[in-house]
Design a binder for these strands. Sequence first.
RNA 1: GGCAUCUUGGCCGAGUGGUUAGGCAGAGGUCUGCAAAACCUUGUACAGCGGUUCGAAUCCGCUAGAUGCCUCCA
Length: 493
Amino acid sequence: MQLYKDQQIHVFNSLSGQKERFQPIVEGHVGMYVCGPTVYSNVHLGNVRTFMSFDMIFRYLKHLGFKVRYVRNITDAGHLENDADEGEDKITKKARLEKIEPMEVVQRYTVDFHNVLDIFNFLPPSIEPTATGHIIEQIELVKSIMDNGFAYEVNGSVYFDVHKFNETEHYGKLSKRNLEDLVHNTRALDGQSDKKNPQDFALWKRAEAQHIMRWPSPWGDGFPGWHLECTAMSTKYLGDKFDIHGGGMDLKFPHHECEIAQNEAAKGCSPVNYWMHANMLQLNGQRMSKTTGNTVNPHELLSGDNKFFSKAYSPSVIRFFNAQSSYRSVLDLTDNGLQASEKGFHRLMDAINLLEELKGDSSSTFNVQEWKQKCYDAMNDDFNTPILIAHLFEAAKLINQIKDNKASLTSEDLGLLKQTLHDFSFDVLGLMNITEMNTGADKLSGAIELLIELRQQARLNKDFAMSDKIRDELAAVGIQLKDGKDGTTFTIN
RNA sequence: GGCAUCUUGGCCGAGUGGUUAGGCAGAGGUCUGCAAAACCUUGUACAGCGGUUCGAAUCCGCUAGAUGCCUCCA
């Protein structure tokens, strides 16, 4: 019996603007596509937040027993910088600046991207396809759209005819716009354009002589348009119609809108049942921006080497911080917020570690089964991790009460509590148990146990100068002693 | 300028038409040689102005602000 048969998920669908019961196309299987990074610079922290949210969703779906094919692309062909003819491929530009090969830039930042995700304990996607590896599929897609009459060629470039498409379909249904408004609000472009209408977007762009990244096509040498790769790769690996498509809120328009149009024009069906969008990350209440300097990259955040934060924060603290807000809310990264999360995170981990030492009792004062279902209910409600965490803290409180003999659980309930806590904290939220990792060093633990014993001797001898010296100097190096009824334990921060 | 989303107690951050979110910080207490940790107790918030309703912070409208997209930045 798979868990997903008991647990009914509801997801917020950007397309309908409301929560809907999640029903995969093929029972027990989920196809999920998430727009990946453009690898022309170090991965943006906001991008990491988006992927972190979908990593959590991927983890939960897997936990429920779904067979998930999770596809997250690598955009290595670069996006057009603008739709004008002088539009330049981002990767080409950067490469020229640095005097190296485009694919060298791509390689460097792809490696960096994977390093960052590893540090944050991401699960790798099932398939991580590259745009440059799917040029043929993209050309075929352009042909289909042209054959169906929704694209036209001008001077070696091919454009999607948005107005023609809008005659029979609604261009703008995802982002809640309509074409008339777009027409009225489009600013006059200075440059000359081959496009019939400003709303049209490129499917294929002719490469100018200096353009390094280029491929032969029926329309001459060129490169694929901005939105094409996601349609080509999502349908190749997940089918013409699949379950979940995710990405950052900023991609809703025009990127995802164009994906829908391309798919409908090429395949005659809307590609996705559930569109999910993760909200933006802010830094101190402001949007992150390279131009204003209000930005911090993942390495700087983790090392503490930045001007925004008082200290370094561990990857799990950042994950925990992220999970304390909904993926659909704007998340404001602040020093106070991270510090509060860090303390809460350590309290939760301490409780989970303490659970290992608890002994079962003859009866339970707490309904673990009911609590467990509340955890699932939280996740089933559009992956509500803040509520889940509230329930995890309820368990932490219970564990501390059991330690103080103010509550009790049977061995069976203890096992269930432990299993559930581990499932949600580590498997679903992807947290790492730092305390356990550190104390796993047996030699260090042994040394600390000895110091605890010496301190206890000193206390019995009323040599408080000595006992306090041991306590305080251990605290100074980040080892905290905790005196309880049944002896002293410690945690390493 | 247009469209969209959001605005919650000292801070962060959920949620609901009438019942406790949770975390951090603060206060009091238990424990302790003193502390720390842990536990117990404690705060009655929902931008402003109107409206719908027996009742709204939760629904509707307007105003203000923030954010996103429309324009290179995830």
